[in-house]
């Protein structure tokens, strides 16, 4: 029965992700790929109430979610789900599973689902999880760089004021000190600010 349904009917896909933005990105990807029955749940607790109505063929969940144990136990109770649900389609497809876990995503599918039907869904989810992680990293980096720039500006300001240097001279002094000590420019700038604060406003 599961086989027949898996072959013909429209797939019902459930996305469980506490991260609302990422969930929307996955949902959009699934809809773009032509999947119409996509449900998104942010809280695992809500799965219990909605699983009957959703009757998912595929469940996509992020690995940061500490509730995977809860979810799996829930699947194992035959009362909650009529059709048995396994993790991934085929245990032998190690590469896909590995890629998915690396990307931070896992999938559960109903028994009897064909590998060809799940693969494009997983490929999309993996790609979007990776893209999301990259964006997050870039955002972090950009934040960090902005922060660094502010610190260096402040350090330059201190040097200009206390030593009467021009801006290029102040910057050059910071750079030379960093190179001579084999330290990063940002660390030298930070030390200078700390020292200046310790010595007080009159300095």
């Amino acid at each position: 029965m599961g086989n027949m349904k898996g072959m013909s009917a429209v797939l019902s896909i459930l996305v469980i992700d506490e991260n609302h933005i990422r969930a929307s990105i996955i949902e959009a990807g699934l809809r773009e790929a032509g999947h119409q029955r996509v449900s998104v749940v942010h809280d695992v607790k809500a799965v219990a109430q909605r699983i009957g109505e959703i009757a998912p063929d595929v469940i996509i969940i992020d690995l940061e979610n500490p509730n995977r144990d809860t979810l799996e136990h829930f699947f194992s109770l035959s009362k909650a789900v009529q059709r048995p649900i396994a993790m991934f389609v085929d245990r032998s497809d190690g590469t896909m599973i590995d890629k998915a876990v690396q990307a931070g995503v896992s999938a559960y599918v109903v028994d009897g689902m064909k590998k060809e039907r799940i693969k494009p869904i997983m490929d999309m989810a993996i790609a979007r999880f990776n893209a999301f992680a990259r964006l997050e990293r870039e955002l972090e980096q950009a934040k960090g760089e902005l922060e660094d720039r502010k610190i260096i500006e402040k350090a330059k300001g201190i040097l200009m004021k206390t030593r009467g240097l021009s801006e290029p001279e102040a910057y050059q002094l910071l750079r030379t000190s960093a190179m001579n000590r084999n330290q990063r420019l940002i660390d030298i700038a930070q030390s200078l600010i700390t020292a200046s604060e310790l010595l007080g406003p009159n300095q």
Binding site: L63, E64, N65, P66, N67, R68, D69, E72, M87, G94, I97, D98, V101, Q102, S106
Partner: peptide
């Protein structure tokens, strides 16, 4: 890690 399921899977996959 934050779940036993992750411990199990990541040990199984060799992470």
């Amino acid at each position: 890690e934050n779940s036993w399921a992750n411990i199990r899977d990541r040990a199984a996959l060799g992470h």
